[in-house]
Computed example of a mutant assay.
Amino acid sequence: MANVCEICGKGELSGFNVSHSHLKTKRRWKPNIQRVKALVNGEIKKINVCTRCLRSNKVARAV
């Protein structure tokens, strides 16, 4: 599953773990993506949506 929200486009971010001695190693932050059934153009589809979009009602969940 792709780590991209189909509503807002939120995806992975990259950066560094920084130790006490200031050594840096690469790391990634992944968004909380859920696969949900939603109404899209009047039909029910499964889409990948971040929890921020679910919580702010940008997605009409199908029952």
Rank of each mutant, 00 (worst) to 15 (best):
M1I: 08
V49F: 06
V63L: 07
G15N: 13
L23Y: 07
K26Y: 12
R27D: 06
V36P: 00
N41T: 08
C53T: 00
K45Y: 08
L54K: 05
N41F: 08
N41C: 10
G11C: 10
N17S: 08
R55I: 02
S21I: 10
N3L: 14
A38Y: 03
Q34E: 14
S21D: 15
W29L: 05
G42E: 09
L23P: 00
R52T: 15
L23W: 06
N57F: 12
E43M: 07
T51Q: 13
K26L: 08
G15E: 13
K58D: 10
N3Y: 12
G9H: 04
V40G: 03
L13C: 03
R55A: 13
H22W: 06
T25L: 04
V4Y: 09
V18P: 01
R28M: 09
G42A: 02
V49C: 06
N41R: 15
V49A: 02
I33P: 01
G42Y: 07
N57S: 14
I33V: 14
E6Y: 04
K45M: 10
N3E: 11
A2D: 11
S56G: 03
C8D: 08
G42S: 09
P31N: 08
R27E: 03
V4I: 15
E6F: 03
N57A: 14
K45F: 02
K46E: 15
I33D: 00
N32R: 13
V4D: 02
E6I: 02
N48Y: 10
K46M: 10
V63H: 05
G15C: 09
K30C: 03
L13Q: 06
K58Q: 15
L39C: 07
L13Y: 05
C5L: 06
E12C: 11
E12I: 15
K37E: 12
V59P: 01
R35L: 13
K37S: 08
K37F: 04
C5W: 00
K10Q: 07
C5R: 00
R55T: 06
P31G: 06
N57Q: 14
R55S: 15
F16P: 00
T51I: 14
A38S: 12
V18D: 05
C5T: 02
C50I: 04
V40R: 09
C8E: 09
S14W: 11
G15V: 11
L54G: 02
V40A: 06
G15W: 05
Q34C: 05
K26Q: 13
I47D: 00
I47P: 00
K26G: 12
G42N: 07
K10G: 00
H22Y: 09
L23C: 04
L39P: 01
L54P: 01
N57H: 15
W29D: 05
T25Q: 05
E6H: 06
H20M: 04
V59T: 07
N17W: 05
K10F: 02
R35P: 00
L54D: 03
K37I: 01
V49P: 01
N32A: 13
N32Y: 11
F16Q: 12
M1K: 12
G11A: 13
V4T: 15
R52F: 11
G42H: 02
R27F: 05
G11K: 11
